[in-house]
């Protein structure tokens, strides 16, 4: 994988933000030359984090979500920053619920697909960091 860093802005209007996220991933993968398996794991995890932000942190019309995607020969990394409400992450959020539950899987899926999923509140912003090793099988 080559070293690439790209910056994107995602609308806080859900349909727009999600379309922009998928477009950003498409252009990033066109440059980054990673395997389909890694694209699936990283892209799915990132989509879950962005969906979580759109559903629970921001409201439509808020300032855009800032996304930075980086890849190096060692790893893929995303930083996602929003100006929304602080996220109080309950421990149970990262455990997969019972098969018959219809919600509550998003962040557990993100964490399971990644090597690192980190959330921090920095001043007035939320900052998510996602890392996946490039050598993941």
């Amino acid at each position: 994988m080559r070293r690439i860093e790209r910056h994107y802005e995602l609308s806080t209007v859900p349909a727009e933000g999600i379309a922009q996220l998928h477009a950003a991933l498409d252009t990033f993968w066109a440059e980054a030359e990673v395997t389909t398996d890694i694209q699936i794991r990283f892209g799915t995890a990132l989509a879950e984090v962005v969906a979580n932000i759109l559903q629970y942190a921001v409201t439509p019309g808020d300032a855009p979500i800032r996304l930075r995607l980086r890849c190096s020969p060692q790893r893929l990394e995303a930083r996602v920053v929003d100006n929304g409400k602080a996220w109080a992450m309950p421990a149970a959020t990262l455990m997969l619920p019972d098969d018959w539950e219809e919600s509550g899987r998003g962040l557990a899926i993100a964490q399971a697909f990644l090597d690192t999923l980190q959330y921090r509140r920095l001043g007035n912003v939320n900052c998510w960091r996602l890392v996946l090793s490039a050598t993941t099988d």
């Binding site: 799915t44 989509a47 879950e48 969906a51 539950e101 219809e102 919600s103 899987r105």
Partner: peptide, 8 residues
């Protein structure tokens, strides 16, 4: 593409 809400 399927996300967790789609699975739900």
């Amino acid at each position: 593409f399927v996300d967790s809400s789609g699975l739900g």
